[in-house]
Nucleic acid binder design. Structure first.
Lengths: 345, 345
DNA sequence: TTGTAGGCGTTATCAA
DNA sequence: TTGATAACGCCTACAA
């Protein structure tokens, strides 16, 4: 057990009361800016509080208020700038509602996610945001009854704020199909079973053109650069390369392009690579990445609104989220065989 | 004032006590796994707690324990993967000490940083980590007396865990100098006045070769892509381009290389660009980025250790941090004029 | 092995 | 305009 305790004499409301020769309850009122306290008293108390370095004790306050004024965000991968956008949206919207935001990073590990959720529940957050949850839905179903949890990007749950996930993937797949690709690889990311909208769209797209589903063209990305490295290795070990790859996200795509280049495979000449998310780096690399823009910031905002109306007892209406947008850049082109017949940007 | 309250009947230790027909204090003991409670009782209580969906109230616990078991991390820019490494180091080390980690993102805005620090103080965190603080040192000096604050990368304070900041910049500058560069640009980042080790090393390096300090070769980066865009514009408006640029960090460098390319300026042919931090993307882009590796993960670990020994009342000894390493890749080369005389990698 | 009592810091509700 | 009081949920002596 940790028992670290800074050798500090914490100043409480009582200390201020003593110094000001008033009752603690008066200090409370003064500090809250209540008008039911003489101005002179209020000023004196504020000055004293500042002088003495008073810091409110949130624990005590939360205990009596039965609310912490906190919103927790469970981030699966801090390493991915994608989630920073979400966080910013959450923060901006939360500020409007006098809520403060706390973040916990799980590294995409299910057990850690559980821990983070638990921590926030113990903190009695007024709202808990879980984008791209790793835990199975069952886990959250049990919690939903008792806690203000809102998911982001989880079509299979009730309390969730979503963008059109399948639509986004269709954008990518159709783009690839239109370029003439027929044999397309797919990189799946970490997700609980049954929650893979990208995979769904991928398979549907293949079906739509009567192309076979080839399991060896399915790869797995766990968020780490190493895992991308592995994918490149698997790819280049294939008898025949697919002509295009739909990567799990931009981070994965960028690393993949690099890993392929190191193996002498050129993008998009030898193989097209499409990403997902449109992080800012995506436009900076060479070749610039074809991807789908995902309104993460807005999703962050909306999930706080959702949370808030939930707290007010209102039935939250499904928020308007801008649709995903296809961003065609340089990492995708026509496949080798049809290359000479098609203009590649 | 926000008053969102999920319509929840929160189960407390008392409820469990009632259900188990024991005293609340027994429940406490049972839940703590104390051996001073009959095993049968303990099991019954644990089962009950799980069934009833009991979630400990941290507020109450913190209040009585006078410690929250929390470590707060104030991140200046979640968008930069660099800080994710720090967070991971913190988390891993914190876990060893039974501490839980909470993160707050400030976007590099001083006022927001103040807010985040305040929030953590109110939460009565056992430790507060502030890497690359934006607030002036004075602000923290006042707090240090009362709160367990540890800085990361702030040479000018007492309670800080540092890498050799100046040394890292010297690595870059010497590399540039050795390549033959004499006219070098510098991108400064957001920092309180007086806390600019990179700038210090930059000027020293110039002095060492008797090169003049040219203010027009100093640019400012605020963390946003837009600001890098502006730098590129300023650069290309110059009568004569410097032959090299020492960018504030890798994010800045990567965006800068892109912005320059769009203006027809090639890296490293027309201008060399060096970064700082060695984020994973740095090796993925084209041209791969020359940079310094910065032991962020270790700094995270060490700052928690520092915090912990501080809490134990020990005088924390300055931790061993691996030195920064120069990573030479492709974004730097000999300057134009000397190009033909020098082998460029 | 279990129960009793008091208090952590703050606030809301009364009463003065 | 201010003071007294009880309560929030939990924990730690101490008593039984």
């Amino acid at each position: 057990m940790a028992k670290p305790s800074w050798q500090t004499r914490r100043v409480t409301i009582k200390d201020i009361a003593k110094a000001a020769a008033v009752d603690p309850s008066t200090v409370t009122r003064a500090l809250q800016g209540s008008d039911r306290v003489r101005e002179a008293t209020r000023n004196k108390i504020s000055a004293l509080a500042a002088d003495m370095g008073y810091v409110p004790n949130m624990a005590a306050r939360t205990l009596v208020n039965r609310s912490s004024g906190l919103v927790g965000v469970v981030i699966p991968d801090m390493t991915n700038p994608f989630f920073a956008d979400l966080a910013r949206g959450v923060e901006d919207e939360a500020a409007k509602h006098d809520l403060r935001v706390l973040i916990s990073d799980t590294g995409g590990v299910e057990a850690v996610e559980r821990g983070a959720v638990n921590l926030f529940l113990e903190l009695k957050v007024d709202g808990l945001l879980v984008p791209m949850a790793r835990c199975p839905q069952q886990y959250y179903d049990d919690l939903h009854a008792a806690a203000p949890i809102v998911h982001v990007n989880s079509d299979d749950t009730e309390h969730t704020v979503n963008c059109d996930t399948v639509g986004a993937s269709e954008l990518i797949m159709n783009h690839l199909l239109e370029l003439g690709h027929r044999r397309i690889g797919f990189v799946r990311g970490p997700a609980p079973p049954g929650r893979e909208p990208k995979m769904f769209a991928y398979r549907q797209a293949l079906e739509s053109i009567g192309a076979p589903y080839e399991p060896e063209l399915i790869f797995s990305f766990d968020g780490s650069f190493d895992s991308t490295e592995k994918i490149a290795a698997q790819l280049s070990a294939l008898d025949e390369l697919p002509t295009a790859i739909y990567a799990h996200n931009d981070v994965n795509a960028i690393a993949l392009i690099h890993a392929l280049r190191q193996r002498g495979i050129a993008v998009p000449d030898d193989i097209s690579v499409a990403g997902h998310d449109n992080i800012q780096m995506a436009g900076c690399i060479e070749p610039a990445l074809t991807t789908v823009a995902w309104p993460m910031y807005e999703l962050g905002q909306q999930s706080v609104r959702y949370l808030y109306s939930l707290g007010e007892g209102k039935k939250p209406q499904q928020a308007k989220i801008p649709p995903p947008r296809l961003i065609v850049r340089e990492s995708t082109g026509a496949p080798r065989s049809t290359r000479r017949n098609t203009a590649s940007s």
